[in-house]
Structure formats: C-alpha cells, structure tokens
C-alpha cells in the first residue's frame, strides 16, 4: 500500500502531463476545424513543456540563479538548484512555438480565403470533387455518351 502511494507521488506529475498531451492529441485528430486543431497542438506543446520542467525540478531546490555574489567565487555545494538546461530549452521553445503557431494561423487564413471554409472534411470533399472533374476532363467522353450524342 505504501509502495503504491509512493509510486503515485513519484509519478502523478507525468501522468497528468500525459492526460493533457492526450487531450491535445484528441483535439488534433477528432476535430475538423483547423483553428481548433492548432489550439490542440498548443495544448500538446504545453504539456511537453511541463514534462521537461517536471524532469528538471528538484524537491526543495531553488531557481537556477546563483544565490549571492560570493557564490561566483566559491561554488556553494549546499544550495540545490533546479536544472538550468531544461529551462533554457523550454523558454526558447515557447517563443519558437508562438512563431510557428502564427505561421499555422496564416496558412488557415489563406485556406479560408481560397476554399471559403476551414473545416477539414469540407476541404477534402472540395478537393476530391475537383480531382474527379479533372479526371473526367482528361479522360474525355465515354462511349455511352458518344452513342447518346452528347460529345462532352
């Protein structure tokens, strides 16, 4: 029983991160609206950030800023710092994330302008209809159509 409780305390953080990640994943694959998909990707992305920061966290540690000027000269082994590397990776990733999200939003705006919709299934239907029309045009009239006297 204690063992189980210990496992939960040790891992609950990762599990919640996975739940958030899966909610994001669900939004991406189950929702047809492109803006909603981007929001889902954002949820997914933030959960990855949380995973990284969780791994870098130390119980009873402090922010990775050296506590005093004296520490510059004398490395202080007593102070526990949170991992600086995960912070660096994630803080750049956040800014890059918003830049790439805006690129996605720009694509959505262009798609909306050319298709008149931003629902995935409608876009696919329109694409397929266009493909079919294109194929019909290339194939030319069928023998039945010629026999009936409609050349095209």
């Amino acid at each position: 029983m204690d063992n189980l409780l210990q496992i939960i305390i040790d891992h609950y953080n990762y599990w919640i991160v996975i739940i958030l990640m899966m909610i994001g994943f669900y939004v991406v694959i189950a929702r047809g609206n492109l803006v909603k998909k981007l929001v889902g990707l954002n949820i997914f992305q933030t959960s990855v950030f949380l995973l990284y920061i969780s791994v870098g966290n130390v119980m009873g540690g402090t922010a990775p800023i050296l506590v005093s000027e004296a520490a510059e000269a004398r490395p202080d082994a007593q102070v526990l710092y949170t991992n600086p590397l995960t912070s660096v990776l994630i803080l750049t990733a956040i800014v890059v994330g918003v830049a790439t999200t805006s690129l996605g939003l720009a694509l959505v705006v262009r798609i909306k302008e050319s298709y008149g919709t931003m629902e995935e299934d409608e876009i696919i239907d329109m694409d397929q209809a266009e493909d079919k029309a294109e194929r019909d045009r290339l194939r030319g009239p069928t023998p039945e159509e010629i026999a009936e006297g409609h050349p095209s």
Binding site: I65, L91, V95
Partner: peptide
C-alpha cells in the same frame, strides 16, 4: 543577467 529575464522575454 541577474534575475529572470533576457532577450526573448524583453522582446515580447
């Protein structure tokens, strides 16, 4: 250099 912050945050 001394506290939380830097180019990314300041830019935003």
């Amino acid at each position: 250099d001394y506290g939380p912050g830097g180019g990314f945050q300041a830019g935003v």
